[in-house]
Design a binder for these strands. Structure first.
Length: 262
DNA sequence: ATGTCAGCTTGAAGCTGA
């Protein structure tokens, strides 16, 4: 199975590029984040015309996550059990969707940005990651052989080499100890990040800010990651980042990350 | 932060979020 994750930054603005990417890269399952559209306006036909089934959750113009699959799309779950909402009273957001694709439980995840360390959104982010880990760990407790993929835009750079200039990020989100610890907790629970070994750094990124000519200057971040359960991680044969997709007019600010399972 | 982008409100430019 060839699985890709991509923060598309609007599925409507990007549909032409997404279709071309699916064809070019022969993708079986695509997890999308930031579709930025309510369910009713999702361009489903662009995908079904190519032979993909679609599962999407979008409440309004914010967030929005989807899975496109041509190898089955069963038992769709909107939100993971225990997923927090934002603010008081808590408002549910469209940040997690999952489906059984072939025999893999695929989660498309858009982790909250956090905004600033002092912002309520940051506490929300940490809570969200903690609850996700709780859920994911429970799945493995129930079935140690479960094939589970947790992929998406994590809005966390796990290592200093995952940002172009670590000094600039001191005191900001995406690199703080608690955020990195939250991802380490997933690893402690048995999930392995499976793309890094095949896409070594430094200087290997998945996201480049639109401003400040960050992309041509190669000033990016590695925040789009793929975690796999033990039984699934064993099947990984390769991974790559489609950096070319970030080029040219009409690109998302994120590149697709592709994982190959044997 | 903004040498940027997207979607919304609103009726051309401002706001939010990233």
């Amino acid at each position: 199975m060839r699985l890709a994750t991509w923060n598309v930054n609007s599925v409507r603005a990007r549909s032409e590029r997404i279709v071309e990417f699916l064809k070019r890269s022969d993708i079986d399952v695509l997890a999308m984040q930031e579709t930025k559209v309510a369910d009713a306006k999702f361009p489903t036909e662009r995908f079904t015309d190519l032979g993909y089934e679609i599962a999407h959750t979008g409440l309004d113009q914010w967030n929005g996550v989807a899975i496109a699959s041509r190898v089955g799309l069963a038992d769709v779950m909107i939100q993971f059990p225990g997923q927090p909402g934002f603010a008081e009273p808590a408002v549910a957001e469209a940040r997690a969707i999952s489906a059984l694709c072939d025999d893999v439980r695929v989660w498309s995840l858009y982790i909250p940005n956090g905004r600033e360390l002092s912002h309520p959104h940051y506490a929300y982010k940490l809570d969200w990651l903690a609850k996700l880990k709780e859920y994911a760990a429970g799945v493995l407790t129930d079935d140690s052989q479960a094939r589970v993929a947790l992929v998406g835009d994590w809005n966390v750079a796990p290592l200093d080499e995952d940002v172009w200039d670590p000094k600039l990020f001191v005191g900001h989100t995406h690199v703080s100890r608690p955020e990195r610890d939250a991802l380490s907790a997933l690893t402690d629970a048995g999930f392995a990040e499976v793309t890094r070994a095949h896409t070594p750094g430094p200087g290997t990124f998945t996201y480049w800010d639109y401003t400040q000519l960050r992309f041509p200057k190669r000033q990016g971040m590695r925040i789009d990651l793929a975690y796999a359960s033990p039984a699934l991680a064993r099947l990984v044969t390769g991974a790559r980042i489609d950096r070319d997709e970030r080029k040219g007019k009409g690109a998302s600010d994120h590149a697709p990350v592709i994982v190959e399972f044997g």
